[in-house]
């Protein structure tokens, strides 16, 4: 019998987003959440937890990484540093 694997995401404090912290095994979502509390927030690391069945995550493949991510590389105009600001202009 193999218990499903769950990925655990913890919000470390209010105002921050949930971050992946690790994984664990649990028979169901209720126990996964409780196990995550015991395993990953022993030192007050969190104020909120998400658990997701690892099998339910759809991930991009490393084989596709060039067509996925390289085309964004030359779109420098998306960054504010691309633009010249005339001397003396503030709050821009």
């Amino acid at each position: 019998m193999i218990e499903p694997l769950w990925e655990v995401f913890v919000r470390s404090r209010r105002g921050l987003s949930h971050t992946h912290v690790g994984s664990l095994h649990a028979p169901d979502a209720t126990m996964a959440l409780r196990n995550a509390r015991d395993v990953y927030t022993r030192r007050q690391e969190g104020v909120s937890i998400w658990v997701v069945r690892a099998a339910d995550i759809t991930a991009s493949s490393p084989d596709e990484k060039d067509e996925f991510f390289d085309p964004a590389g030359d779109k420098v105009y998306r960054h504010p540093t691309f633009y010249q600001v005339p001397e003396g202009v503030e709050h821009l």
Partner: peptide, 11 residues
């Protein structure tokens, strides 16, 4: 019975 429970019972 499982590692997760070792941690839980420890708490």
């Amino acid at each position: 019975p499982q590692l997760e429970e070792d941690v839980a019972l420890g708490n």
